[in-house]
């Protein structure tokens, strides 16, 4: 589905970084460098972005 709006553990708004994170990953940057740069410091917030699988576009046709 869509990336969760907030971190499940601490509550930081993390979804705002999703597009930038994906674009920079596609450019070949390392996940660690991107997350450090975006200010996602805690490992609870980092896993929200690192482990998310965006399936919303696969579901689109069935809406």
């Amino acid at each position: 589905m869509m990336v969760p709006v907030r971190c499940f553990t601490c509550g930081k708004v993390v979804a705002q970084f999703w597009d930038a994170y994906q674009q920079r990953l596609a450019r070949g940057e390392k996940a660690k460098d991107i997350l450090d740069d975006l200010g996602v410091d805690r490992y609870c917030c980092r896993r929200m972005l690192m482990t998310h699988v965006d399936l919303v576009n696969d579901l689109g046709p069935y809406g």
Binding site: M2, V3, V5, V13, A15, Q16, F17, W18, D19, A20, V56, N57, G60, P61, G63
Partner: peptide, 28 residues
Amino acid sequence: SRDLVPLGDPELAIADPDVPIVTLGARQ
């Protein structure tokens, strides 16, 4: 989240403008 338009004071626009809320398909 930036597509949510507040009625009245524009300063009340959502603090984080880049939060994706939903993806719309064609004709949705």
